[in-house]
Amino acid sequence: MISIAFALALMGVQDLPAAADIEPEVTTEVAPAPAPAPEPELERDPVTGELPVDPYEMSNAHAGATPFTGTAMRDAFHGQEGIRRVVDNMVDRAVIDPRISEIFVAHDLVRLRRTLFEQFCHILNAGCDYTGRDMESSHRDLGLQVDDLNVLVENLQAAMADEKVGFAAQNRLLSKLAPMKRDVVTR
């Protein structure tokens, strides 16, 4: 019983630093603008709206999983349209989820939505190539914990449920993402 009270007290304590971190940074920006650019001199591409990144080699292998074969998974996700809705919904949820929202500040969400879409579309065999970076190098500097991953998985599950993707198919996509934990979670 003592230990339960103790652990409960800890649960309270651990909320404090998080709350303290949310500094009411006063910016005059009004529009739901994408996160501020990490370096002021970077300019968004007028066509894609993305920030430039350092050059890297492109390969479908960077998607981090062998794609499904056949069309069942593509259909379960309602094709590219559905996959785009799932990815956008997941990102929308993640960036306002108080448990992980801070991690996305100052990252190029335009690029993230595109590369995540490509990655899911490629893995689900819905006719895309993945042109983003590999999982290890794109998460290396984020210092993610397994709790962050679990939160993102919950956001993805909610997005897939909104898209009415069957639960077995949801888990099948997760089975492709689960082994990537070792590249994504660095702490």
Binding site: I2, S3, L10, M11, Q14, R187
Partner: peptide, 24 residues
């Protein structure tokens, strides 16, 4: 229980107090 809790926790607290997260 409480002893091992406090040792484990205090070992963890100084370096990364903000990282102790429960219920994940």
């Amino acid at each position: 229980f409480s002893l091992s809790a406090s040792t484990l926790v205090s070992a963890n607290l100084p370096a990364q107090a903000q990282d102790l997260r429960n219920g994940g």
